[in-house]
Design a protein around this nucleic acid. Sequence first.
DNA 1: ATTGAAACTTGATCGTT
DNA 2: AACGATCAAGTTTCAAT
Lengths: 174, 174
Amino acid sequence: MSTLDRRDIDILFAIAETNSFSTETIHEATDIPKSTVHYRIQSLKDEGVVENDLFELDRERIGLAITVISEVWAEYGEGYHEEIGTKLSAIEGVNQVYFTMGDTDFVVIARLTSRDMVERLVEDYESIDEIRRTSSKFAITTIKEDVGVSVLRNYEPETLLAAQGISEESVSEE
Amino acid sequence: MSTLDRRDIDILFAIAETNSFSTETIHEATDIPKSTVHYRIQSLKDEGVVENDLFELDRERIGLAITVISEVWAEYGEGYHEEIGTKLSAIEGVNQVYFTMGDTDFVVIARLTSRDMVERLVEDYESIDEIRRTSSKFAITTIKEDVGVSVLRNYEPETLLAAQGISEESVSEE
DNA sequence: ATTGAAACTTGATCGTT
DNA sequence: AACGATCAAGTTTCAAT
């Protein structure tokens, strides 16, 4: 259960930025020798920081222990939601932004390291002119978080197969 | 912009289930020849269904065009939130479940293929005894969704480096 | 823990059906 | 589009530091 050092972090960032985790690519992006990149990634996997070959992370180990879910109400003209959404997206720690219909305008999910960072998040919300009101709650536990390809774990193949028929073609009368 | 057939779906499911996308592993899991697995995965990438080497998916193309965000209120004794959370997690299409503090008990995010599936989701909520009330809204657009390793894209390396110091060791006085 | 170079495994290519 | 055989490329190992 050792801590991550700058090199681990650099490697993980390089993976996220290059969208690749080939030892070759990460070597080129970081100037860390291939064999060391390999060794470090292996260690991260052994220790469980990287949870599988799909590079899902143990967020706690990365230091992102706090999850904040915010509802955001904004005032905006035609087409401005894109712009406000982009501003929300740019706040450090924000990793999901949904533009919603109904009583709320945006739902934002952020992963943060500390109380300080939570305060900063709220300040950053308030610094956006168009934003009228926000309401945030903490997630005590993330019970489930399937993302990327792994979302598929919770569907029947038939459900998605059926969706293909519906989305592209008219109803076929086989 | 062709549709996905059963083979594409089988390959994607195999990736999600085995947590791996080596042609070798997928070949073993599906009995589809290596070169065909390779060919199909390449096609999925070329067409943008698979968006990068981290296997982030274009959810629209997979048929999961609808995003529903639900707040769920429940009645439960000590330690029962785990159980209810598990029930929520098991509903087809649910891919994020947060147990929250404050006015709501759970926040659930589901990705669905059709209106029918939305109705089914709500019915499934209601079929859970402990659940008192739910409130769902649709996301019109997913403006940002960084998940897995890619969450790192929105942090300064220093932020996470600092978090390491805090989480594991006492303050060092270098 | 780090590294360069060697050994090997795998993914990518090619030509055929 | 599917596939088996071939080859290039990248990954993993190894021994030294």
